[in-house]
Structure formats: C-alpha cells, structure tokens
Design a binder for these strands. Structure first.
Lengths: 200, 200
DNA sequence: CAATAATAAATGACTGTTCATTTATTCAAA
DNA sequence: TTTGAATAAATGAACAGTCATTTATTATTG
C-alpha cells in the first residue's frame, strides 16, 4: 500500500475552504478558488472528497470536532465560572472578526440548516455549546456567583439565543466589535440572576 | 404613455420571488424559477428589473416598505402595550413558518449584509423595528406595565437580539413553533423589569 | 511493477444576459 | 368610427461564461 504522497493534507484543504467561505460566502464558493488557495486543481478536490458537497460535509464534521474540543476545555485559567463562560462564547466566534465574515459564516450555517446531512453537525455544535454553557452556569451557582435556585436550563437557552442574536444585530448595525457586544449582552442577561443586586 | 399592458404586476413578481427564496433559498434562486412561477420568461424579468440583482434590490426595497408599514401600525386592538409588542415580533416573522423557510430567509438576509446596496434596506428594517419596540416599551413604562426607570433603549437592543437569536436556535433544534418560543423568550427577558416581582 | 496522487483536457449542464421579433394597447388623425 | 402610427411588453433563440464532474494520462512513491 504505497503510492504518491499527498502534496497537501486534508486539514489544510478544509482550513482553506473555511477561509474562502469567510471571504466570499458559501454561495460564491467554488472548487477552483479552494484549489488555487492550496495549490491544487479542482479535479483533485473532487477525487479526494467525492464531490463539492462531500468537501462541505468534511468541513462541517471537522468544525463540529473543533467546537467540541473547545467546549470541553476546562478553562482553568479563569478563576470565575462566569468569566470562563463569557470567554467561551467570545472564542467560539473568534473567526468572525468582521461583519462580512460573520454574515458569510452565518450563510454557511443556513446552508447547513437546509441540507439534512450538514444540519446534523450544526446541531451537534449547538448541543455541545449548550452543555458547556449549562455546566458553567451550574458551577457559577455552586460557587455563589449566581443566585441559588437559578433555572440553569432555561438560562442556557436564553444565553444561546442572545449569543446568536447579538452577532446578527452586530452584523446589521455594525457598532463596536463583536466581543464587546457579546460581553455586554451576556452581562445584561445574567444581571437579574446575580446574588447581590436587589434593585437599581 | 401607451403600450401593451403588463400581464403581471411588479408586486406579484416580487411576491413570487420571495416565495421561491423561501422554498429553495437565495443561492438556488434562478430567474427561470421566478419566471415560471408567474408565467413569464427570464428575459422579461431582466428587461423589467435590469438584472437579477435589480430584482433582489426591488424585493428588498418593498420588504423594507412593508416592514415599516407594519411597524407603524398603532396596534390599537391590543389593550396592553406588552401584548402589542409580542404580537409585533410574532407578526414580523409570520412568513417563516417552518425552520427551512426561516433558514432561507435568513440566508437572504446574509446576502443583504454582504451586498452594500441590499444592506441599506436590511438596516432600515432593523431600525424601523427598533423604533417600534422602543416606543411600545415606553408606553409600557408609562402605563405601569414595566418598572419606572427602565432603560428602554438598552432593553430594545436586548429584545432585538433575543428575537433574532430565538429564530436561529429554533431553526437549529426545531422544538415547538417559532411564535411559541418568541413569546417565551421575550417574556423571559422582560420578567426582571416587571413591577410586581421582587424575587422568586 | 503496483498503487496512489495529481494533472490536463474535455464534457455537459446551467446560468444570466442580449437581440431581433412579435403581440397588444393607446393615441391621434382622417 | 376607422385607420394607422407610436409605444411598451413579452417572447424565443442564441451567446458567453462558469461550474462541477469525468476520463485519460503522467508523476511519484514502496
């Protein structure tokens, strides 16, 4: 079982695919652009991934794996559970540093939602992040950062929605940076559940 | 001002365009599909709207007008300002009755965010809805439905984010219906600002 | 030699767009 | 009223371009 060695790894191709998507969007994605990015030819990509759709599925799969690895990080460098939570959400959107990139990644997500094969991975990322958020919220309650009796399951859903929605509104009005607005939005949602505050 | 009368109005074409986008998404949108929907031929659409891009711009323009009309509705049939607010948010997402349709409309929004010409209209819709939300929140404070001293501007931003984010997470995990989840999410965000509640 | 990777060239299917032509309507003159 | 020109809409055919994919060939290793 020998043969000519591959000139470029799958990981490099997938990273290049994500890069092109972030630049021109999934609708404008072409095998020629990806091939040019890694110094190959479109036919090679088809031969290695089966089809353009296969390349996208492979990218979605690795994205799900990467996200899961990120969500399982103990985040031990943060003393506070809430600080770790905010850092987690910020890091998971680190690639979308400009509104256009965010829009393109969001468009890719929309493609996932339509295609049954891709939707599975998008849902896996969503679930993985949800578990991480709920775990950190539980830790925050246990350590006294949040009120005892806080409904962490419901709060997890709210935080997931506010995270996605903040990105969308940021891409719309383009005020400030995404990390800034994420921190602010998450803080606003958490504020009613903080232990110390009783009123304004 | 003579000549052959148009067999089908612009409004019908734009509605058909939105219908096709809701079905196959903006990436799969083709002039042939829209033309077949209204009983015309692709060339006619190009002649009337200048180009495919022109058709999309026209659709975005009318969407902005429709949204603005909806947001300026006095919503007098609702006795409560908060009830009117929830109804407004539900109605503005009435066309996206299934996760796939929502994803496709969202993908169209992403296209808007990338294209400068389309972004203007998407931002106009966002601003228009923001004004309507803030106005209703102000009314709610004045009528005692919300605590006096509530920061309506900040709360408006949170509600816009939670609205968009709830749609996205609904398209992801597909539990329940969008109106249900919208009501629940908005209620969760408003709860800390209700006057009666001091604690659980 | 055997096996795999990469390539080059060609194909087929779409696409948006342009052009010349036909069809339908209104306006104006006889 | 009737006729004919002017105007605009719609059509069908053809164009040019792009894309993913296939086939056949060459290169590079064990």
């Amino acid at each position: 079982m020998a043969g000519r060695p591959r000139a470029v790894d799958d990981a490099v191709i997938l990273r290049a695919t994500a890069e092109v998507i972030g630049r021109v969007g999934p609708a404008g994605l072409t095998l020629g652009a990806v091939a040019a990015e890694v110094g190959l030819v479109p036919a090679t990509l088809v031969q290695r991934f089966g089809s353009k759709h296969g390349l996208l599925v492979a990218l979605a799969r690795q994205s799900a794996q990467d996200a899961d690895a990120l969500h399982r990080q103990p985040a031990q460098r943060h003393t506070s559970a809430l600080a770790a939570l905010t850092a987690l959400l910020v890091e998971s959107t680190a690639l979308m540093d400009t509104p256009e990139r965010f829009a393109n990644h969001l468009a890719f997500l929309c493609m996932d939602l339509t295609d049954p094969q891709l939707h599975e991975h998008a849902l896996a990322i969503h679930r993985s992040r949800g578990e991480a958020v709920r775990h950190l919220l539980g830790r925050a309650v246990a350590e006294g950062e949040l009120r005892a009796g806080t409904d962490t399951a419901a709060l997890t859903g709210t935080i997931q929605a506010i995270t996605a929605g903040t990105g969308l509104t940021w891409a719309l009005d383009r005020h400030g940076t995404l990390p800034q607005r994420l921190r602010q939005a998450v803080a606003a949602v958490l504020r009613p559940h903080l232990p110390g505050t009783e009123d304004s």
